[in-house]
Write a protein that binds this DNA or RNA. Structure first.
Lengths: 341, 341
DNA sequence: CTGTTAGCGCCTTCAC
DNA sequence: GTGAAGGCGCTAACAG
């Protein structure tokens, strides 16, 4: 800890009480501008730095929020952090960062740590135990906002992307340019968005009167790494007698894996097979061809989560926010080479 | 803030003093295991969560470190955060994250904020005002560790990558495969590493007896965005009567910009011009062709910075660490098509 | 306008 | 083995 000098020291030097110093330093109108001036001067000279921990003890607010993310290596995460951190700082709040590595126990222990730190509120992205917080909210008096909660069930405040609509719009695009044989490489390890994107995929097919081919619906829960799951998924699809002409991938990193595998086998994208991603991460623009994808407004979602938290801390009512993803057309989708039926 | 229950409440319920509770909860051997057991039981039932802020006030340690980064959008940053955060958590420390946006004033105000929070130590990446902390270290009693400090001058503890050696090795690789006309697109906005990479570049040329062509040494301080500076730099180089056959770019994002511009003009990489990056970020592997680059062990550098901080907090002596970047050969470099002289 | 007093939740001698 | 008392640095009534 720092700067041994406290308001008492300043008080002594100024010949006043520590409460006078406290007031002067915080700009209380009741202090004569003369003494206030003198005190501020002294504080600066003596190198005084107020102690947020002492203040927090008495005000019972730390002006600190906890931000729990799965992993900073997940390309989805950084922009969310950015949105949260900027909004927090603007409001004079500090952000404590913690990673859960997508492990439920770790997520809980990290939340406990944040409680001890007496954060005023908590934001959790891709929580796998979101429902728990509804109950905990009673005991722990801090509000929790979930971003893209990954567990079905009751929970309180949330900011999410509309997975169903996104998937539907994306698959509709594929249908629109002529595809009829469309596969889906999912990610059951993120149960909530997996099911929702799957649903949007099925809805789009159904609307077109197309039956879902179960052999084209990949739901492998054994592979955590997105790129690898995309590669293996693609390898499987390409080995089928009846190949799809387009593949909707759970997210961009999965699509990148699929792309890599296709190119490795000399399959051309999009000429031989079209690829659709989800997320709109920077990497999607860098690969060749660039990915057609559904962009999540990640920065804005981070901002909104923090804004929501600020409202909750202010006692204002809030309602859940559902963000619409936007279709970004890249080079990975094109009409199928051979029209089927 | 949370959980109204304090050790006093537990004391009352257990029929002992709050000091007994304090001891029992922290496993003081002097408390009979019977009462200790009872107290722990009670604490759990009552949903007690110790207050780190109250504890910090008396112990004068927060077990918290501040981590200042330029921007989380900088692809260099996330892995460093990861290394710091993991190491911190292992040691029971919490990480407060703050971004400086590479603005010196903002960096300083953020550091002040961290001081108020009474963090035990601070880690700053790519600081532009590193030297200041040497002086401040006297007043503020918290140690500061700099990662890739971007300002020449006196400072205390640091973890850096060996820019000179990295640049030299990279350019030697270009020379080795036959290039003689090698340009450099620098980044004067990061003064320290710019100068060092420039130096390594010049040293490698000199060792080969090659004069440095000033027209091939680009030092534009007016463009902050790496990709854009790479694009414009490349455009300029391609417009020259005497074109280079290879370009060493300050970092990978700059190289990606250069690559994009070359491809836009129908110039083939590496056939027409070779490209060398620096950093070894994930994006370098995704572009076509993948970049030849110098990989910085970013995660390890984050770990080392935090480890160093822990030692400092423990009163142990530390010495600066210089990490060696590793040459990663990708598809962006090849022998020049036409041998010159 | 300024001083007095109390207490936030916890740790820590010093007694018993 | 446990209690009593004091204080970490600050804010917040309540007096004057």
């Amino acid at each position: 800890m720092a700067s041994g000098v406290s308001i008492k020291d300043i008080a002594r030097a100024a010949g006043v009480t520590h409460s006078t110093v406290s007031r002067a330093l915080r700009g209380d109108r009741r202090i004569s501008s003369a003494t206030a001036q003198r005190i501020r001067q002294l504080a600066a000279e003596m190198g005084y730095t107020p102690s947020a921990v002492a203040r927090s003890l008495v005000t019972r607010r730390t002006r600190t929020v906890g931000l729990v993310v799965t992993s900073i290596a997940d390309p989805f995460v950084p922009a969310v952090i950015d949105g949260v951190e900027h909004t927090a700082l603007e409001a004079g709040y500090t952000t404590i960062l913690a990673t859960s590595r997508s492990e439920p126990e770790r997520e809980l222990s990290v939340v406990r740590l944040l409680q001890e730190r007496r954060v005023d509120g908590i934001i959790i992205t891709a929580s796998r135990v979101g429902a728990l917080y509804a109950g905990m909210l009673a005991t722990m008096q801090v509000p929790v906002v979930l971003v893209n909660n990954q567990e079905e069930g009751e929970y309180l405040y949330s900011v999410s992307v509309d997975d169903v609509a996104g998937a539907r719009i994306g698959v509709e695009h594929l249908l629109h340019i002529g595809h009829r044989r469309i596969a889906f490489i999912g990610c059951p390890l993120r149960p909530s968005s997996h099911m929702r994107r799957r649903q949007g995929y099925l809805e789009a097919l159904a609307k077109e009167g197309l039956p879902a081919n179960p052999g084209w619906l990949l739901e492998d829960a054994s592979i955590a790494d997105d790129v690898e799951r995309g590669m293996l998924g693609m390898r499987h699809l390409l080995s089928l007698a009846e190949r799809p002409t387009a593949v909707f991938c759970y997210n961009d990193m999965t699509a990148i894996g699929a792309l890599r595998e296709a190119q490795r086998q000399g399959i051309e994208v999009p000429a031989d097979v079209s690829l659709l991603g989800f997320d709109g991460i920077r990497e999607a623009e860098l690969v060749q061809p660039s990915l057609t994808t559904l962009r999540q407004p990640r920065y804005e979602m981070g901002r909104e989560a923090m804004t929501m938290l600020l409202k909750l801390l202010d006692g204002q009512p809030v309602h859940d926010q559902l963000f619409q993803p936007r279709l970004v057309i890249g080079g990975s989708t094109a009409p199928p080479r051979t029209r089927v039926e």
